[in-house]
Simulated scan of single mutants.
Amino acid sequence: MVSIHTSRCPSHARSNSLPCGVHPLGMNIEEQLNRIKSSEATSTSLASQKLGILKDVFDCVEDWLKLSLSQQALSNEHRKSSVEKLLDGSLELLDVCGNAKDAFSQTKECIKELESVLWRRKGGDCCLAKEVEAYVSTRKKLMKIISKYLVNLKKMERKNSLNKDSNTEASLSMLRQVEEISFSVFASLLCFLSQSSANLKPRGWSLVLKLLSSNPVACEGEEDTNEMATLDSELLSLKSGKASSLQVSNILKRSDALESSLQEVEEDLECVFRRLVKMRVSLLNIVNH
């Protein structure tokens, strides 16, 4: 699977004589965030690209937080309330990232179970109605969980947006932007898993879409299809009637590739989670210094 790995921040860019807006690290962070904004995760390869960029963003933020100028700006007593809000936001990001990782892990296991069944039924024509129904049942349960994750995520975004203060200090502004983009990336990943046939949408899904209507990430659209939606569609077409050996083989190939892709995204999310922990620890150290 194609994955773009962006370059790490230049280690020599540690001058603390420049304000955040024009410091090489700050400029690098802004550039990477703009790259994320300009892409949409409608496939696992693009999802990995976004996560790859996000990992680099957090690496840059970690280096930036080591600058004495950054530490002075964030430890200023007048900005204590704003920094505490960032700390609250970092905790919420950890929760959302963990939920996204769990969702990918559970979806991957669902597909592995499907593959196990299909391998046993691979030879000759066969009826897969029971197997497809079992997969559909599990997917519906997962979609219900994902819908809850998306609703909670949107509530966090709105709360953080309302809690913004009028402080336009560059350091705080940049960290808030990192937070907002991170929420957006996690939302796009959950939306990726939720793209499927209407037959798999849980009750109240239309309300979820309405809640997410202001989000730049589309969770549903006739023109937007991805590996999850394609696999679901192919399986549903086999719900009635017999499936040929060739059909089963094609589905196995598709599901195997998807499983590997989901595994890679899951691992990327684990890397992002660890970087979020490091960023939160760094912020805590600055505040408590």
Rank of each mutant, 00 (worst) to 15 (best):
M1I: 12
I4W: 09
T6G: 09
S7K: 06
C9T: 00
L18I: 05
M27S: 07
L33V: 11
N34A: 14
R35K: 13
K37E: 12
E40G: 04
S43M: 01
L46T: 12
K50V: 00
L51W: 03
E62C: 03
L69H: 05
S70R: 01
Q71F: 07
L74Y: 07
E77L: 15
S81Q: 14
K85A: 11
D88A: 11
L91I: 07
E92I: 00
E92F: 00
L93M: 11
C97Q: 10
N99C: 10
T107R: 07
E109H: 07
C110L: 06
E113P: 00
E113L: 07
E113T: 06
L114D: 03
V117R: 09
R121H: 10
R121T: 05
G123Q: 08
G123F: 05
G123P: 00
C127F: 02
A134F: 06
R139A: 09
L142M: 06
M143I: 01
Y149H: 15
V151C: 10
N152D: 13
K154Y: 06
M156Q: 09
E157V: 10
E157K: 11
R158K: 13
N160W: 10
S161L: 13
L162C: 14
K164V: 08
K164P: 00
D165L: 06
T168C: 05
T168E: 11
E169W: 03
E169F: 07
A170P: 04
A170I: 03
Q177V: 10
E179M: 15
E180M: 12
F192H: 14
F192T: 01
K201T: 02
K201Q: 11
K201A: 07
P202W: 03
R203N: 08
W205L: 04
L209T: 15
P216Y: 06
E222Y: 10
T225F: 12
N226Q: 02
E227H: 09
E227F: 08
M228H: 12
A229K: 13
D232Y: 09
S233T: 15
E234G: 13
E234Y: 13
K242C: 01
K253V: 10
L258A: 07
S260R: 15
S261R: 13
S261V: 01
S261L: 05
Q263V: 05
V265M: 06
E270D: 12
